[in-house]
């Protein structure tokens, strides 16, 4: 399942982050690593970005980027 399609306020676990070298290393630096738990907390309208909480940090991710993050439900 892609992060883009996850419901708001539900915690999910990252499986992988795809995308070019630029995007993946940027995500890695912000602490989006496989195994980390993240939550979508807000969505901007008109196809705007997602507001995601990861490790106590809030990050805005464009839809394109969010489509490249593969997640699964938390156990």
């Amino acid at each position: 399942m892609k992060l883009l399609n996850v419901d708001d306020n539900i915690q999910v676990e990252i499986i992988s982050c795809k995308g070019g070298r630029g995007i993946s290393s940027k995500l890695r630096q912000l602490g989006f690593m496989p195994g980390d738990r993240i939550t979508v907390i807000q969505r901007a309208p008109f196809n705007g970005p997602l507001l995601v909480e990861a490790n106590g940090r809030t990050v805005a991710l464009g839809r394109g980027v969010a489509g490249k993050i593969e997640v699964k439900a938390c156990v």
């Binding site: 995308g19 394109g64 980027v65």
Partner: peptide
């Protein structure tokens, strides 16, 4: 060429 998209930390 499409822009790669936003990745931006939103500080408290």
């Amino acid at each position: 060429k499409k822009s790669p998209g936003l990745i931006l930390e939103v500080p408290p």
